[in-house]
Design a protein around this nucleic acid. Structure first.
Lengths: 122, 122
DNA sequence: GCCAAAGTACGATAACCATCGTAGTACGAG
DNA sequence: CTCGTACTACGATGGTTATCGTACTTTGGC
């Protein structure tokens, strides 16, 4: 296969909603979950190259898959395959364009909460 | 009770969470509903003196009560009785203190959406 | 080709939530 | 005191969601 693709990118395709079609309720609903909020926080803290399995979430592997899909379908993250791994990145710019200031304020609030209660797993 | 009560305030008490105890997931979850989002939007647009019944929501009265309670228990609105009416006000300052920038960004996004799709009931 | 690793798909289950109708409570007007 | 208005409480119901385990697929290394 000599197509002009990234070195190890698989042919598998993942659905991503267009920026203009992102829905506010969907985004808020996706962020209104402790597990997903911690995923978003980890991605924002520069762990964009982490595979799903590396997040060490307090749920099973299939539940983890489910949460990543909810985030992807809400338009909050973009996912791509690298070998057997599936890596994720925040759609920071898209979100800023569509819902200015929303993601930063959520991230700041969540970071503050983590400083207050560092032991809180949720 | 020495809380400088308004003239016609009833003895009925409503529970309101303290500002310091507001939870981000709860707030996001409360906002992740079209009906509640439209309530919040109406309140932000200066209709703070409206009674619940005046919002003309596309749901029954008991469902409306439910949504107002969710907003109140999440800490997004404050409610007080005036005669038989129960009026609501956004806790703008409390929210700004606890989650800076969150409410304005949500309101802006929702207003933009309404400009794009003025006929969308949801 | 074969195996392990990472993730997906699917079905089941339990919890949660939005919705409603009905019955009831609180309040003000008369 | 009675009545109407505004809201609440309660129970039912149907839909969505979070969770899991098991079986399957895709990929890369040997």
């Amino acid at each position: 296969m000599s197509e002009s693709a990234s070195p190890t990118v698989s042919g598998r395709r993942l659905e991503h909603p267009e920026t203009a079609r992102l829905r506010l309720e969907t985004v808020l609903g996706a962020l209104a979950d402790p597990v997903r909020l911690s995923i978003v926080c980890a991605l924002a803290d520069g762990h964009e190259d982490m595979a799903c399995v590396a997040f060490d979430l307090p749920v099973s592997k299939s539940t983890s898959t489910h949460h990543f899909r909810v985030l992807r379908e809400a338009g909050i993250i973009r996912q791509y395959y690298v070998g057997t791994a599936r890596k994720s990145a925040l759609r920071t710019d898209d979100l800023q364009e569509r819902f200015p200031g929303l993601l930063p304020s959520v991230l700041n609030a969540e970071r503050d909460r983590r400083e207050e209660h560092p032991d809180d797993p949720a």
